[in-house]
Design a protein around this nucleic acid. Structure first.
Lengths: 110, 110
DNA sequence: ATATAATAGTCCATAAACAAGCCGTTATAA
DNA sequence: TTATAACGGCTTGTTTATGGACTATTATAT
């Protein structure tokens, strides 16, 4: 199963389902979870159906004791040797665009 | 480093930073990423500063080719034997609360 | 060194998430 | 089997994210 074959919507739903499973595994009610995370019951319902803010997800994962999963979520990947060569050793702070300066000027002048 | 020692806010910022690093590693501009993900430039800026919706995160990760990490996120772990014993073999659909029925009635009657 | 594109920061209007509450259904403890 | 608490779905008003635009700063290609 390739995750890229799923729609954004399907991924959101699956995410919500897994959070719900996590909660049920701990036998915690939505109401109790909401209170523990200082959120409304509505937000818990929404999150388990796949909608919500990042801050909500984090607060809920903390209460469910599942924050460690966030680490594998967006890992700090190492830089490939090829990339290292392209950048002259230092970390890039901006992406490089294309310089049209002279090309554009030439076009205009002609 | 324990992730639980970080505040929700710090975690959001770290998440945004990692997304930015992911983008720069691919040498993609915020503008190009926004267009590819069918989002506004504003949203990319916000996401990289740690704010935003879940749907935004998913759309961006897709464009950055980082969706696979979601698979390891909140894995569907197997149920522990203890839990299996508590629930009589089947998957719990609701968390169990406390039944106050008779207790409460007694209290009222006295 | 210089020009310019990438980015952070701000604004405004609109859309969506949020908080609080209510109702109908149903899993489940008794 | 039955009573009840958990839950999904809805409504209303508030808060926050989003889209689009503009400005100032600065990394970086030339």
């Amino acid at each position: 199963m390739d995750i890229y074959s799923l729609s954004d919507n399907d991924i959101e739903k699956e995410l919500g389902n897994r959070i719900k499973l996590l909660r049920l595994r701990k036998n915690i009610t939505q109401k109790a979870l909401a209170e523990a995370a200082a959120l409304s019951l509505n937000v818990i319902k929404s999150l388990e159906s796949g909608r919500g803010k990042l801050s909500t997800l984090i607060a809920v994962l903390r209460e469910l004791g599942a924050l460690e999963h966030l680490d594998s979520f967006i890992p700090v990947t190492s830089i490939s040797p090829i990339q290292l060569a392209k950048m002259r050793g230092r970390q890039r702070e901006r992406a490089s665009g294309q310089r049209l300066k002279d090309k554009a000027k030439d076009k205009v002048e002609w």
